[in-house]
């Protein structure tokens, strides 16, 4: 009896895996590093950044990572019972806003089904079931710009940041809602500083942001980062 049930379980697993056409997690790791890692961390030591950490995402209810400020829509989906699995991650990664309309994940999506399958296979490695989170070193978290540690260490003046931020809030909603322009409320200061310097050095392409960042001093960027990090909704 014991032996039979094991066999049945194994057969089911093989069948399910085959039907889902598990992707290539090595290739998924490369895509993750290119497309996802500027906002998300995964692996041992991962923490929340612009996006939540992604360890253990499989079989987790949407919007549940402790300490991360989700959009209202994401929380609502979680409350309504959205649990992450292969199918809905595939839909979400194809076009995030199609599944969760006001998600803060400002990502246009992976249009190639193979890319999605590979990334999902990679994500799966870091979920408890069926595998434990490996004890391997964390994925290298790449930085977009080489910043002098002194720049990252500047303590921003949040009062100045509040004034400077009024210029950002013409487009970026204070509430953190994203209706076509990404939310920046609650971003970790370091991510904010790196993103602004990436615009300033024209490594990120957006012309409005290049212009806005281009005339901000290092102290002003630090002030803005300090303000947005602590801004409550």
């Amino acid at each position: 009896m014991y032996r039979i049930s094991l066999f049945v379980a194994a057969a089911c697993f093989v069948q399910a895996a085959a039907a889902r056409d598990l992707g290539d997690e090595k290739r998924g790791a490369e895509i993750f590093a290119r497309k996802c890692a500027s906002c998300h961390q995964i692996g041992a030591g991962a923490v929340n950044r612009v996006g939540p950490l992604l360890n253990g995402i499989f079989d987790r209810k949407a919007g549940q990572v402790e300490g991360f400020r989700y959009s209202k829509d994401m929380l609502r989906q979680g409350a309504d019972g959205l649990v992450w699995n292969f199918e809905n991650l595939d839909v979400y990664l194809e076009n995030p806003k199609a599944l969760i309309s006001r998600t803060r994940m400002n990502f246009r999506g992976l249009k190639d089904p193979r890319d999605r399958a590979d990334v999902i296979a990679y994500l799966r490695r870091f979920s408890a079931n069926p595998q434990d989170i490996p004890e391997a070193a964390p994925t290298a978290f790449p930085q977009e710009v080489e910043l002098d540690p002194e720049i990252l260490a500047i303590e921003g003046d949040p009062e100045y940041g509040e004034y400077l931020a009024s210029e950002c809030l013409t487009c970026h909603q204070r509430s953190g809602d994203d209706e076509g322009i990404p939310a920046i409320t609650g971003w970790p200061a370091e991510d904010f500083v790196i993103a602004m310097h990436a615009y300033k050095e024209k490594k990120r392409p957006h012309p409005v942001m290049q212009m806005m960042a281009g005339r901000l001093s290092n102290e002003e960027i630090a002030a803005l980062a300090a303000y947005f990090e602590t801004l409550e909704e």
Binding site: L169, T170, C171, Q173, R174, S175, D177, D178, I181
Partner: peptide, 14 residues
């Protein structure tokens, strides 16, 4: 265009 829609939401909230 999508950015302009986001801007409209942003500036009217502001």
């Amino acid at each position: 265009y999508e950015e302009s829609v986001g801007w409209y939401a942003g500036i009217t909230a502001d």
